[in-house]
Write a protein that binds this DNA or RNA. Structure first.
Lengths: 256, 256
DNA sequence: CTTGACACAGAACGGATGTTCAAATATAAT
DNA sequence: ATTATATTTGAACATCCGTTCTGTGTCAAG
């Protein structure tokens, strides 16, 4: 019979190709020959080398001579050979999500766009200064950077027009459980409801702080998030300049 | 006097980071330590290792212990230091499948939106229990809810496969500036770099906490985010069970 | 049966590679 | 000056890793 193998791959090379994809997705670099061998149940490095040569000749991968972990995937496995079930690792799941985003990009852009809000990052907030506010109209669209937040994270009927973001400068709001570098997403408003966390400008102290807001029989109580700290009582609500209410705080750890 | 030297990287590490980007874009895998050394004019491998440690501690790269060519770029160089435009055209095909898909997607929809990652919310984290971990190979896809995060908020080349989210239960982590109801997004890992905020299971105290991780001459220092609190010193690093590193914290304020 | 192409095993070689250590020098802080 | 910390050198070590070589067994064609 015509055992014409020139077109097809053996089972082992296919498994290797799958493993390469999975490994690289997960770890960001290529496995070594011995790692490949262990995964497919072969402890002869020469045999793995043999399979890799096949994959290279068929144009599926490339590798540099004498360089460890230099395998690059050039061509995807044909679907007819993929033969693997859906349930994969978490990484593959995320991968498929990305793949979906790619393939659906043209069709679903509008949908995605509505799910992802681009909130202008208009400046920094520190204790010593009133917070900057976005211009009421628009047009600051490309002047500053922006923070992208999924709509699903925000209160469902939040009006997006009044949202803006600030980066926290300094540790002055540490008692509000907000740290240097955090991004606070605020809603522009001059009124607040009880229990809201608001940014207020305190004229007497000459500073901006984040506090929980309570209006109780004519007096304003500004309560720090830290329960061990004393609240600030203000008799005349007119003195309290609410600059916005905090909708969300995002803290990123850039591994530092 | 404030001699702003602590700002960041020296000239050598910056040059290394540029070289890493260039090399990986061109060849699809990471250079070896000696290749890096040759490029920056240093033939001491330990010195390159030293620089790479700095880059890792600052969160620019990640690498796996004892694995050759395993450097991944996590964070791009700040533009103020880059001194180089972004060549997006050629050479990008050598990137891993994920990287390729991501960059393609970004290119496809860059005008309207970036990608939205759906990160599984696998449970709650409290002081009294080890944190639940996502099963690596099972389909928890629709059994739990998920948190949607724009990729732009995550480190640029972060591997997305190992991410999962937990909701904070209780105020036990208030000294880590994490409050009840916060959502922490973590990366599944059993190793940590200095300065990372990690979730660790402390057997003696029988609790899980979030602390900054430092490995200093063989001992582990777990530093609370609250600077007024004392660190925990652990002589034997084997005792420290790192369950993951915190990538992001999201706090939502529901408006009434 | 013989031959030859193919698939596989095991071991060994030599170079590549990450890691570590001791020590020297430089820089900054006290 | 003195101490402490950061940077740098050089070398050595133990593995890791790709490559190669000698086999063994299979199976179909001549």
């Amino acid at each position: 019979m015509m055992a014409r193998k020139s077109e097809g791959l053996g089972e082992r090379p296919i498994k290797i190709l799958q493993f390469l994809t999975e490994y690289q997705d997960r770890r960001g670099y290529s496995p070594s020959i011995r790692e490949i061998g262990k995964h497919i149940g072969v402890d002869s490095t020469s045999l793995v080398d043999y399979y890799l040569d096949q994959l290279a000749e068929k144009g599926y991968i490339e590798r540099d001579s004498r360089v460890s972990r230099s395998i690059r995937i050039i061509k995807e496995l044909p679907e007819s050979l993929s033969g693997r079930a859906k349930p994969e690792t978490a990484g593959a799941k995320m991968l498929s999500a990305v793949g979906k985003a790619v393939s659906d990009a043209a069709a679903a852009v509008s949908e995605v766009a509505t799910e992802l809000l681009s909130i202008p990052l208009v400046g920094r907030i520190g204790a010593s200064l009133p917070i900057p506010m976005p211009e009421t109209s628009s047009a600051y669209f490309d002047s500053y950077s922006s923070v992208e937040i999924a709509r699903s994270l925000l209160p469902s009927r939040e009006k997006i027009g009044d949202l803006f973001a600030l980066e926290v400068d300094g540790v002055s709001m540490i008692d509000a459980m907000v740290n240097d570098g955090d991004i606070v997403i605020m809603k522009k408003t001059s009124t607040a409801n009880n229990g809201d966390m608001v940014a207020v400008w305190l004229e007497e102290n000459n500073e901006t702080t984040l506090k929980y807001f309570y209006l109780e029989n004519g007096k304003v109580r500004l309560q720090p998030a830290n329960p061990t700290m004393e609240p600030i009582m203000i008799d005349n609500p007119e003195q309290v300049r609410v600059q916005g209410k905090v909708v969300m705080v995002v803290r990123q750890f850039k591994s530092q």
